[in-house]
Simulated assay, not measured.
Amino acid sequence: MGSRADEQRRRILDAAVVVFSRRGYRATSMNDVAAGVGLSKPTLYHYVRTKQDLLVGIYEQVLDESLASARAIVAAAPTPLEAVRALVVERVRYTCEHQDLLKICFEEESELPDELAEPILERRRAFEAVVLGAVQAHLDEAGLEVPIPPKVLVNTVLGAANWVYKWYSPSGPLSPRELGEQVAAVQLAVLGG
């Protein structure tokens, strides 16, 4: 169970997601974030030092949740192919259900200075390695070869799954999970699944 301070930081991060997504990172001030969470600016600074810290916190949240989920999916899957399918479905579902969050992650990355971007990239590479490991395990188990390197296949599949943040409509005919199933079916056909 988190402390009151952790809960407050989470509320601040949630407010930052809303404001950054709506206004853009550069156009957002700490006053905007404070107003979004209902705090005074001095109180906000008690919990977070800079706007950059908020942006890093958003990336860490997405990548830590994604990595934990990916590892759990692979551990629970009955076969490597089912793991890959479940990873794609989950990636699409998460992206559809957190469009504001993913918009920031995909559109504001250039705002991170190199020293802050490197730990974020390490987390992203760890997530991609889990997906690549599942793909490679399936290829090895099935004795398959794909027409492109497995890493390129993984980047292509994740690119398609991640891009849904741009066009998915919650009022559309498909739930996030249903859309994930369709994306997985198309993207994984090359794997025989």
Rank of each mutant, 00 (worst) to 15 (best):
A5E: 15
A5F: 10
A5K: 14
E7A: 15
E7D: 13
L13N: 01
D14T: 01
D14Q: 01
V18F: 06
V18A: 10
V18R: 14
F20H: 00
Y25I: 02
R26T: 10
G36Q: 04
G36Y: 04
V37Q: 00
G38R: 03
S40H: 03
S40N: 01
P42T: 02
T43H: 06
L44N: 03
H46D: 07
R49H: 08
Q52M: 10
D53Q: 06
L54V: 00
V56G: 05
G57Q: 06
Q61G: 00
D64S: 08
S66N: 12
A68N: 01
A72S: 12
V74K: 08
A75R: 10
T79M: 03
T79W: 04
A83I: 07
A83Q: 07
R85E: 09
L87F: 13
V89H: 05
R91V: 09
R93G: 05
C96Q: 07
E97Q: 12
D100V: 02
L101G: 02
K103V: 00
C105Y: 13
C105I: 14
E107C: 07
E111T: 09
P113Q: 08
E115H: 15
L116K: 14
E118C: 04
P119V: 03
P119Q: 04
L121K: 14
E122T: 10
V130T: 13
V135I: 02
H138R: 06
L139P: 02
L139H: 02
L139C: 00
E141Y: 09
G143H: 06
G143N: 06
E145L: 11
P147Q: 04
I148S: 05
V154K: 02
N155V: 09
V157C: 08
G159H: 08
A160N: 12
A161D: 12
W163I: 12
Y165W: 15
S169K: 12
S171D: 15
G172Q: 04
P173Q: 11
L174Q: 10
S175D: 07
S175K: 09
P176K: 05
E178T: 08
E181G: 02
A185G: 05
V186W: 08
V186A: 11
Q187Y: 07
A189F: 06
L191S: 00
